[in-house]
């Protein structure tokens, strides 16, 4: 069983658009949406939820006892989550990372850590096989932990059902949820676009996959919007041992199809669909070999 994570660095380059088409073409995989704070894959796959579970994330500190206003916790907190500890102690739940240092250091045991529900994760069935996805509660942290959790579930499902591959729709950026979506995968695909922003973020995403030593593919979406930038990306791929699957031309049909929640490959003759089918044929050989 092989796993591939589709990431981009920059948001909105077409990760979910491409991943959903791969899922439709694949047929024998488990799908995972690791963009847990702005999940979109379900919009395309219309999953039927079979099981939904609360995700209890990391902890956060709360004042529960009689505070003597000694100021020790404020001084010890590395995340600047505690303020006014010499008058009226305040713990900022946004800044608190639940490390437990304040609880440990408090001389009168006035602080305790609590864990809270931070989201919900779902095990679902779609027309295109099992799907594991999640919804982080708005404003929550620990998106990395919930990503790790849904990936473990996807691995169990894949092993128990003899699935050949896991297709992972990643999050934008290069931070916690992206790192968790790359941890232990066999391959990564970076979807980029020929804009200066796209190139900058593409390179950062590639640095990340290099850091984790993951064999990486790339593809350029809306490649003809800027041919010069497209060439910069293909040259970069050539010079950095990155396999460029190819270029998807700008295709008016794409936003229209997406607005109607249709897969790009539902119109197999459109220029974008032809390319995505071609990419999947290449990836299929590698994933299913």
């Amino acid at each position: 069983m092989k796993q591939i994570s589709i990431i981009s660095g920059k948001g909105g380059t077409g990760k979910t658009t491409i991943t959903s088409s791969f899922i439709k073409l694949a047929g024998d995989q488990v799908s995972v949406d690791c963009d847990v704070d702005a999940a979109n894959l379900h919009i395309m796959l219309s999953p039927v939820i079979k099981e939904s579970n609360d995700f209890i994330g990391g902890e956060a500190a709360r004042v529960t006892g009689e505070c003597i206003q000694c100021g020790k916790c404020e001084e010890a907190c590395r995340f600047m989550a505690i303020s006014d500890s010499e008058t009226d102690i305040k713990i900022d739940p946004i800044k608190c990372e639940g490390c437990g240092v304040c609880e440990e250091i408090c001389p009168v045991d006035a602080i305790e850590l609590f864990s809270e529900k931070q989201g919900t994760y779902y095990i679902s069935e779609t027309k295109y096989g099992p799907m594991v996805h999640a919804k982080l509660d708005p404003g929550s942290e620990n998106s990395g932990l919930i990503v790790s959790r849904i990936r473990e579930i996807a691995e169990d499902i894949a092993v128990n059902n003899n699935k050949k591959a896991i297709l992972i729709d990643g999050a934008p950026g290069i931070g916690c949820p992206v790192i968790s979506s790359l941890n232990g995968v066999d391959y990564a695909l970076i979807v980029t676009e020929p804009t200066l922003s796209g190139i900058s973020d593409f390179k950062k995403a590639h640095e990340l996959t290099k850091f984790f030593n993951i064999e990486t593919f790339a593809c350029i979406n809306k490649s003809d919007i800027n041919e010069k930038n497209s060439r910069i990306i293909s040259d970069y791929c050539r010079d950095n041992d990155l396999t460029l699957l190819g270029k998807i031309p700008y295709d008016e049909m794409v936003p229209e199809a997406l607005s109607r929640k249709q897969f790009i490959v539902d119109n197999p003759k459109s220029p974008a669909a032809k390319k995505i089918i071609e990419f999947w044929d290449k990836l299929k050989k590698i994933l299913y070999s």
């Binding site: 948001g11 847990v36 704070d37 702005a38 946004i94 982080l136 708005p138 404003g139 929550s140 942290e141 998106s143 999050a171 934008p172 950026g173 931070g175 949820p177």
Partner: peptide
Amino acid sequence: CPPGTSCPMVASVK
């Protein structure tokens, strides 16, 4: 701000 709705977004808009 960064995209998303989790801690990095909150840290930016707050």
